[in-house]
Protein backbone atom coordinates (compact mmCIF):
# COMPACT_ATOMS: atom_id res chain seq x y z
CA UNK A 1 0.00 0.00 0.00
CA UNK A 2 2.76 2.43 0.96
CA UNK A 3 4.59 1.62 -2.27
CA UNK A 4 1.47 2.44 -4.21
CA UNK A 5 1.16 5.83 -2.52
CA UNK A 6 4.80 6.67 -3.21
CA UNK A 7 4.26 5.73 -6.84
CA UNK A 8 1.18 7.92 -7.13
CA UNK A 9 3.07 10.84 -5.64
CA UNK A 10 5.99 10.33 -8.03
CA UNK A 11 3.70 10.18 -11.00
CA UNK A 12 1.64 13.15 -10.03
CA UNK A 13 4.79 15.21 -9.58
CA UNK A 14 5.51 14.53 -13.25
CA UNK A 15 2.40 16.56 -13.91
CA UNK A 16 4.02 19.43 -12.07
CA UNK A 17 1.79 19.10 -9.04
CA UNK A 18 1.05 16.79 -6.21
CA UNK A 19 -2.45 15.66 -6.81
CA UNK A 20 -4.53 15.83 -3.71
CA UNK A 21 -6.75 12.93 -4.66
CA UNK A 22 -9.41 13.76 -2.13
CA UNK A 23 -9.70 17.31 -3.37
CA UNK A 24 -10.10 16.73 -7.07
CA UNK A 25 -13.34 18.00 -8.53
CA UNK A 26 -14.01 15.19 -10.97
CA UNK A 27 -17.17 16.77 -12.24
CA UNK A 28 -15.66 20.10 -13.17
CA UNK A 29 -12.16 19.50 -14.44
CA UNK A 30 -11.81 17.14 -17.33
CA UNK A 31 -8.05 17.64 -17.58
CA UNK A 32 -7.56 16.83 -13.91
CA UNK A 33 -9.79 13.79 -14.28
CA UNK A 34 -7.67 12.55 -17.20
CA UNK A 35 -4.46 13.05 -15.22
CA UNK A 36 -5.78 11.24 -12.16
CA UNK A 37 -7.07 8.41 -14.34
CA UNK A 38 -3.66 8.02 -15.97
CA UNK A 39 -1.84 8.12 -12.63
CA UNK A 40 -4.17 5.46 -11.24
CA UNK A 41 -3.73 3.31 -14.38
CA UNK A 42 0.06 3.52 -14.31
CA UNK A 43 0.56 3.35 -10.55
CA UNK A 44 0.48 -0.43 -10.18
CA UNK A 45 3.06 -0.70 -12.99
CA UNK A 46 1.13 -2.80 -15.49
CA UNK A 47 3.02 -4.53 -18.30
CA UNK A 48 0.32 -3.46 -20.70
CA UNK A 49 -1.41 -0.10 -20.55
CA UNK A 50 -4.63 0.36 -22.50
CA UNK A 51 -5.87 3.92 -23.02
CA UNK A 52 -9.14 4.77 -24.73
CA UNK A 53 -8.95 8.20 -26.37
CA UNK A 54 -6.57 9.57 -23.72
CA UNK A 55 -6.07 12.89 -25.54
CA UNK A 56 -9.54 13.84 -26.63
CA UNK A 57 -11.31 16.79 -25.10
CA UNK A 58 -8.25 18.09 -23.29
CA UNK A 59 -6.62 21.48 -23.57
CA UNK A 60 -3.19 21.72 -25.19
CA UNK A 61 -1.22 21.86 -21.95
CA UNK A 62 -2.86 18.86 -20.32
CA UNK A 63 -2.54 16.97 -23.59
CA UNK A 64 1.17 17.66 -23.61
CA UNK A 65 1.47 16.46 -20.01
CA UNK A 66 -0.43 13.27 -20.75
CA UNK A 67 1.62 12.73 -23.91
CA UNK A 68 4.80 13.15 -21.90
CA UNK A 69 3.61 10.74 -19.22
CA UNK A 70 2.89 8.14 -21.88
CA UNK A 71 6.29 8.66 -23.55
CA UNK A 72 7.89 8.34 -20.11
CA UNK A 73 6.01 5.10 -19.53
CA UNK A 74 7.26 3.71 -22.83
CA UNK A 75 10.83 4.95 -22.73
CA UNK A 76 11.79 4.62 -19.09
CA UNK A 77 9.92 1.51 -18.21
CA UNK A 78 9.68 -0.24 -21.55
CA UNK A 79 5.98 -0.87 -21.25
CA UNK A 80 3.58 -1.59 -24.06
CA UNK A 81 0.82 0.96 -24.57
CA UNK A 82 -2.27 0.36 -26.70
CA UNK A 83 -4.33 3.48 -27.25
CA UNK A 84 -7.20 4.58 -29.42
CA UNK A 85 -7.26 8.06 -30.90
CA UNK A 86 -8.71 10.26 -33.57
CA UNK A 87 -5.72 12.57 -33.35
CA UNK A 88 -3.24 11.54 -36.00
CA UNK A 89 -0.58 13.81 -34.50
CA UNK A 90 -0.51 11.77 -31.33
CA UNK A 91 -0.64 8.56 -33.32
CA UNK A 92 2.44 9.62 -35.29
CA UNK A 93 4.29 10.71 -32.16
CA UNK A 94 3.61 7.62 -30.09
CA UNK A 95 3.08 4.62 -32.30
CA UNK A 96 5.22 1.85 -33.67
CA UNK A 97 2.26 0.05 -35.10
CA UNK A 98 -1.06 1.41 -36.33
CA UNK A 99 -4.42 -0.29 -36.82
CA UNK A 100 -7.19 1.71 -38.47
CA UNK A 101 -10.79 0.81 -37.81
CA UNK A 102 -13.68 2.02 -39.90
CA UNK A 103 -17.24 1.06 -39.02
CA UNK A 104 -16.06 -1.81 -36.90
CA UNK A 105 -13.76 -3.24 -39.50
CA UNK A 106 -9.99 -3.15 -39.66
CA UNK A 107 -9.05 -1.26 -42.81
CA UNK A 108 -5.33 -1.01 -42.19
CA UNK A 109 -2.84 -2.86 -40.02
CA UNK A 110 0.74 -1.72 -40.55
CA UNK A 111 3.88 -0.43 -38.90
CA UNK A 112 4.25 3.33 -38.71
CA UNK A 113 7.34 2.93 -40.89
CA UNK A 114 5.26 1.41 -43.68
CA UNK A 115 2.86 4.34 -43.47
CA UNK A 116 5.71 6.83 -43.55
CA UNK A 117 7.25 5.19 -46.60
CA UNK A 118 3.86 5.14 -48.23
CA UNK A 119 3.38 8.89 -47.72
CA UNK A 120 6.96 9.53 -48.83
CA UNK A 121 6.54 7.81 -52.15
CA UNK A 122 3.17 9.33 -52.89
CA UNK A 123 4.08 12.94 -52.12
CA UNK A 124 7.69 13.45 -53.11
Amino acid sequence: MTEWVVEVNNLSRQFGQTLALDQVDFQADRGMRAQVALVVAVAHRPDLLILDEPFSGLDALVRKDILNAVVRTISEEGRTVIFSSHLLEEVERLSDHVVMIQQGRITLDASLETLENFSDSSFS
Binding site: N68, V71, I74, S75, R93
Partner: peptide, 18 residues
Protein backbone atom coordinates in the same frame (compact mmCIF):
# COMPACT_ATOMS: atom_id res chain seq x y z
CA UNK B 1 20.73 10.01 -25.45
CA UNK B 2 17.72 8.38 -27.10
CA UNK B 3 15.53 8.49 -24.02
CA UNK B 4 16.08 12.09 -23.11
CA UNK B 5 15.56 13.28 -26.69
CA UNK B 6 12.38 11.19 -26.92
CA UNK B 7 11.10 12.73 -23.70
CA UNK B 8 11.97 16.28 -24.68
CA UNK B 9 10.36 15.92 -28.13
CA UNK B 10 7.44 13.87 -26.81
CA UNK B 11 7.91 11.08 -29.32
CA UNK B 12 8.32 7.36 -28.87
CA UNK B 13 11.96 6.34 -28.30
CA UNK B 14 11.81 4.01 -31.30
CA UNK B 15 11.47 7.07 -33.54
CA UNK B 16 14.69 8.52 -32.15
CA UNK B 17 16.37 5.12 -32.48
CA UNK B 18 15.36 5.05 -36.14
Amino acid sequence: PVRSLALSLNVTPNTVVK
